[in-house]
Design a protein around this nucleic acid. Sequence first.
DNA 1: TGTACATCAGTGAACGCGCGTTCACTGATGTAC
DNA 2: TGTACATCAGTGAACGCGCGTTCACTGATGTAC
Lengths: 205, 205
Amino acid sequence: MPKRGYHHGNLRQALVEAALRLIEIKGPTGFTLSEAAKQAGVTPAAVYRHFEGREDLIAEAARQGFLMFADLMQHAYDKYQPSALAAFEATGRAYLAFARKHPGHYIAMFESGISANRTPELADAANRARGVLERAAAELSQHIPAEKRPPASMFSAHIMAMSHGVVELFARNAPGTASPYAPEDLLETGIGVYLRGLGLIDPDD
Amino acid sequence: MPKRGYHHGNLRQALVEAALRLIEIKGPTGFTLSEAAKQAGVTPAAVYRHFEGREDLIAEAARQGFLMFADLMQHAYDKYQPSALAAFEATGRAYLAFARKHPGHYIAMFESGISANRTPELADAANRARGVLERAAAELSQHIPAEKRPPASMFSAHIMAMSHGVVELFARNAPGTASPYAPEDLLETGIGVYLRGLGLIDPDD
DNA sequence: TGTACATCAGTGAACGCGCGTTCACTGATGTAC
DNA sequence: TGTACATCAGTGAACGCGCGTTCACTGATGTAC
């Protein structure tokens, strides 16, 4: 991507990518609009041709993150169909894989303090991601006897919580809360126990 | 607590408390040393009589948080003894209760980016809190047949992850990830399913 | 009880810094004729 | 193909701001004699 003299060519996306890099390295706090501009080879003022300001830039990074996140989970889900159980488990693994692979996006999405309701576009993207997981949960919960079946949205909320918790506490070079287990194992076993608790996995493994 | 003229009397603790208030309102990002000093009725420079700097102040807030956190969980645990199960569940509830009741501390502990290994004192406090949960898990896991018993530290890591995830995703006026369930219910049912998965609760409830 | 003095917790002014944002501008691009 | 002109993406200087931190200082406290 050679730099074109005065006009940049695709500054908007270049700024988003610079922001992601900075957020990943310096945290949501350390990220500054000015530095993102500098990394994109442009004056800070130029940013305002494409974004309303600092927050708006982070929001766009988050939005792109939610879209990728949804795609990644959907893809994992599709791949393991038609087994509802295998597909669901794959979706959980995809959650952690995303956090690992795209930390900048993940931070923008969940740790930047940007509300997912900031703009309709951002809310849509966030809902789409949540929808994937909820559909996977809904399908899987068909296999639970109706009288002891929890609502699918509660089910998926539990999985999201455990996944997010594993990422935050154990998958970052975290607040010293180191653990002897690999995050992937921790999540896999945690979800395993949970699904057994729902009667979806045979007690004898 | 009347303000004593030139000398403050207990500035150190007053600064910690101001910091906690600010962290709670403005997030770990928004908190500034200068404003904390101002709230304590003192020049920013005075802070340096008691702390090495901004980070050190946050670290002290976190340290105090971990101590309270440990006490609170320990207390909940003791109260429901000798039933290992009831005591364990109470410990989980205490986790969420702490996050609710002391958001400033919680943020300083888990969201401020301060490493728990920053100082030995902080690490001690953090370990003490983790120890409470791990002991509760260890005791409870005695009730699982040895051959299908997971390590207690993994067990407690799962519970920490789910608890933390519930706090972050559902108990804050969070990233729009609202949910129709009360965080307390979500955590209670989530832990319930998990314990059932370990065979610690009768499948028929 | 009174005085001298050491200790220490605060002041207040100053620093350099980088931030986000604004503004009038100018250089490059592309389109109409 | 060539020229005039509108559009638009960038510049660069300037702004006011509050930050964390330092420094020499001074006012209050408490202790020794």
